[in-house]
Each structure stands twice: as C-alpha cells, then as structure tokens.
Design a protein around this nucleic acid. Structure first.
Length: 251
DNA sequence: TAAATTTGACCTGC
DNA sequence: GCAGGTCAAATTTA
C-alpha cells in the first residue's frame, strides 16, 4: 500500500505543480506561445489526475495490495503438465509492483511480449511483457502496458518485480524520455516499439469526444472537460467562469 | 536458424 | 460464468 501511496502522491503532486504553472501563466499576458503552453499544461493536469485515479482504483480493488501466495506449482515444484493442458501456474498476486503513466513505454530494458488481451470497457488492449533475460538470468521482471483512453498518447505501465539480470537501463532512459524509441538497444525488432504500435490502434476521434461527454466518462475525463471549458472561457472572455483553480485542484 | 511476435486456448480468482 | 493473466504453437523477422 505504501507503494500505491507514493505513486499517488507523486502523480497528484505533478498535477498540482502543473496547475500552479497554469495558474501563473494565466495570470500573465498570454500570447500564442502561451496558449500552446497552457494547452500542454491542461493535458498534463488531466493526465496526472487520471494516473492518480488509476492508482486509487487499483488500490481499492486490491490489485497491488495482496499478499503473495505461494503456489504448489511454483519454482522447483512445478509438475509436468498433463497431456493436452498448458503448464500449471498461479495468477500473479505480488505486491512488488509500481505504476507509471508515461508517453513512452521504453524504459531501457529489453522486454519480450508474451501476451495481449482485450480489456473490458477499454478501447485498447493490454500487452504483457517479461524480461528478455528471463531464461538466461532468471529475471522475473514483468510489465503491463495499456494505452490511456483520454486521447493522449500516454501509456499506463505497471511493473512487477525487479530486474535481476545484468542489463542496466540505458543512459537515454536515465536522461529523460525517449520519444522515438530508437536509442535503447540495437535489437532489430524492439519488442516495446512493436508493442507501442500494436496497442495504439487507430481510434476514431468521434469516439474519443463521445467518451468525454458520456455519462460513463472517467472522473479524469470530466476534469479534463472542465479544464478545457474553463480554458476556452478564458480565451474568449479573458476570465474564468464560475470555477477557480483552487476549487479545481485543491478542494 | 534462432529469436521475437501473434494469437487462440487454457487456467485462476472473483 | 466471466474477465484477466499466462502458455505455447504457429508465424514472422533478421
């Protein structure tokens, strides 16, 4: 649960900081460049709240707070699968996880995709990766990647376990985001890059806009709608509507 | 030819 | 029974 709290605090703090920057921007004279910056900040705020809500939701469902369960089929106790059946396994219930919301799924490690699932009420499939060095070094690191549905090119990434393989993250990851995903390794076919393409199917814009206005929209999308409406109001009138930023962010 | 990806089937937890 | 997670055969790629 502590991991969830940390993630949540970090994510919401980003949202708060972005909101403050936006507030400062709006209190100054806004030119065209400023408007572009404001738009970016609104998007960041929306994404931060979305990420925070994801953490909250996953926490409420207990996804990250369960105690690991030992499996009779785990480790050296794995029995030969019965003929015609897949290997015996337990669904993962580890607490050793962390969540990220990022505009790239690159993290400097070499991942091998082992599955993909369509998720209920989600436009984008969830992709499952394990460390490429699982066999060679027994590295048990896993990650799940799913594209956010708020119209941005952000990805919800959940990491499980830690890398035990001698394959440290590349400098490009440590130094910042790598938007074109080309510099991490020289593999001819980068699993993460392929997955990024694959989990980003062409989604009709009208579908996205419908989601924003839908009663079933996520709270984050509602927030984004509010923020964008206020932004439009500011552009048109030079002032906000009935809502203040303190009301939005700090209430 | 080896390694990676795709994808349908299988398995578990709720 | 359903949704999500994993397996592994088939396919693709370099």
């Amino acid at each position: 649960m502590d991991i969830n709290k940390k993630d949540l605090v970090e994510t919401l703090t980003k949202g708060r900081d972005s909101a403050k920057k936006l507030q400062n921007l709006l209190s100054q004279k806004v030119d065209d460049d400023g408007l572009a910056s404001v738009g970016d900040l609104v998007t960041k705020i929306s994404q931060s709240f979305y990420g925070g809500l994801l953490v909250l939701n996953s926490s409420n469902s207990g996804e990250f707070s369960r105690v690991p369960v030992s499996s009779p089929c785990s480790g050296d106790q794995i029995l030969a699968p019965a003929k015609g059946r897949r290997g015996c396994y337990k669904r993962r219930k580890t607490i050793d996880s962390r969540m990220e919301v990022s505009d790239t799924i690159e993290d400097g490690y070499a991942w091998r995709k082992y599955g993909q699932k369509e998720i209920l009420n989600s436009n984008f499939p969830r992709c499952y990766f394990r460390c490429t060095h699982k066999q060679g070094h027994g590295c048990k690191a896993l990650k799940q990647v799913q594209k956010l549905e708020d119209g941005s090119n952000m990805f919800h990434i959940i990491y499980f376990g830690h890398h035990t393989c001698p394959n440290p993250p590349t400098s490009s990851h440590l130094g910042g985001l790598d938007l074109d995903c080309k510099s991490h390794n020289n593999l001819p076919s980068n699993p993460s890059t392929i997955a990024k393409d694959h989990i980003d199917p062409s989604v009709k814009q009208e579908d996205l806009s419908n989601k924003v206005s839908s009663p079933q929209s996520s709270p984050a999308l509602v927030w984004k709608e509010i923020l964008l409406d206020e932004f439009e109001c500011f552009k048109n009138n030079g002032s906000f509507g009935d809502i203040s930023f303190d009301d939005i962010v700090f209430s």
